[in-house]
Each structure stands twice: as C-alpha cells, then as structure tokens.
C-alpha cells in the first residue's frame, strides 16, 4: 500500500452515506449524511467535499476502499458502483472491506485483548446478519462465521458477550448483555481496515467484484 497517498473510503452499507479521505489516524476528512434514499445522490458530492476540504484531486488518492457488506442491498450497490467508476476513471485500485470486520475494528478499543463480541445487524423484520468475533491484538478472528439467522434464534449464538447491534432485542434473546448500538462502521474504519489489512485484497481486477449479501438460499419452487 502506498503510504504517501491517502485512502478514499466509502461506507454505504446502512442508513449513513459515509465518505472518509484518510491520510492518517490524526489527519482525515470525513462526511456522514443520514438522509433516507439519498446515497446515490449524495455520495459524489460527499467525495467532492472531502477532496476539496483536503485540497487534493481524486488522482492524488492511493486507493479506494469500499464497504463490501453484508448490509443494505441498494446501499452496497451504490457504494460499489461509485468505487468502481472512480477507480476506472482515475486508474486506482480498490480494496473491498468486510463491513463487520470494520465494525469490530471500530469497537476494539473498548474491550480487552481476546474479548469475544457478537455483531448482529438487522437484515429484515425476521433475520439478522450475525457473527461472533475474538478481538485478538493483531487480527480479527471469527469464532462463529458470518451468517444469516432468524432473530428469534439468536440466543443459540449469543451468550454473555457484548453485542454490537442495531436490533432492539427481546428479553428472551439476551440476558443483561452489554449493548453497543452501531448499525454500520464509520467510514474512517473502512479506511483503517484498508490500511491494516487491505494489501492482500487490493485489486485492479474489480469488474466482477460484488458486495457480500450472504444470501445463497436453496431454490424453492
């Protein structure tokens, strides 16, 4: 990864349309807009805003990091399309960032090393994307792989761990667990994940790159 050039990070997996132009942990320009059905309208003006604020051009960017899901279908497609378009037009590589790993990175500072946390984010009224993670010092370990699960069955996964979630849980599912209400990572952490872990997945072959929807159910007809 080119350390001299900033990372342009896009986070559109949920309600927030977020953009971060990241130079370092101490120097970054971030825009977050919470406005329903506006991601496609706001993402490019947000990118312009952070670039203009930093006084640079898109061609001065080193890499585009994009939140890769799981999350909102429409949101992820908008982010991915914007990333591909900018990358193609400016000859830049793309780093697809696993959204839940960026969430883990964001909350890591609140927990001791080797803490276990559950991340559960709503898919629809009945289902959640869920995983259990060990916050190792150097990496993010998935104890239970990311999966789609019925919300009323989440107690099969959740024990006493803190839960990072945007779901209001029934008392039958949780038992005095510590809750952090986060639906999606800040775009800063999309950039930070790209900086720490992005080297191996950075690519210029992004034509067939698709968001991770985690939805590969059996055909039923």
């Amino acid at each position: 990864m080119n350390k001299q050039k900033p990372i342009l990070a896009l986070e559109t997996s949920e309600k927030i349309c977020g953009v971060c132009l990241y130079f370092s942990d101490d120097k970054f320009f971030e825009s977050k807009i919470n406005l329903k059905n506006s991601h496609s309208e706001k993402i490019f003006s947000s990118i312009d805003y952070v670039l203009n604020s930093a006084g640079i051009n898109i061609k001065d960017v080193g890499v585009i990091a994009v939140s890769n899901g799981p999350g909102s279908f429409t949101g992820l497609r908008i982010g991915m399309s914007a990333a591909k378009g900018l990358a193609l037009g400016s000859n830049l590589p793309v780093v697809p960032v696993p959204t839940f790993e960026a969430i883990a990175l964001q909350v890591k500072k609140y927990f001791k090393i080797n803490s276990e946390i559950v991340i559960a984010e709503r898919v629809n009224s009945d289902e959640a994307y869920v995983t259990k993670i060990n916050l190792d010092n150097e990496k993010i370990d998935f104890i239970i792989p990311l999966q789609v699960k019925k919300i009323d069955k989440l107690n099969e996964i959740i024990g006493k761990e803190p839960i990072i979630t945007n779901i209001s849980f029934d008392e039958k599912i949780i038992n005095n667990n510590f809750i952090i209400n986060i639906g999606a990572p800040d775009p800063f952490y999309i950039a930070q994940w790209s900086k720490y872990f992005g080297t191996g997945v950075k690519t210029t072959e992004y034509d067939f790159m698709e968001p991770n929807y985690l939805k590969n159910f059996l055909i039923k007809k």
Binding site: S72, F73, N124, I219
Partner: peptide, 17 residues
Amino acid sequence: VEKINELYDIGIEDYFN
C-alpha cells in the same frame, strides 16, 4: 422468477424493509 437469488438481485429486502 426462477431462482431466489433473482429476488435478492432486485433488492427484495429493501422493498419489504
């Protein structure tokens, strides 16, 4: 619709949500 993935491809969750 022939495959359930076609429904995910049109963003079925977003309609129902």
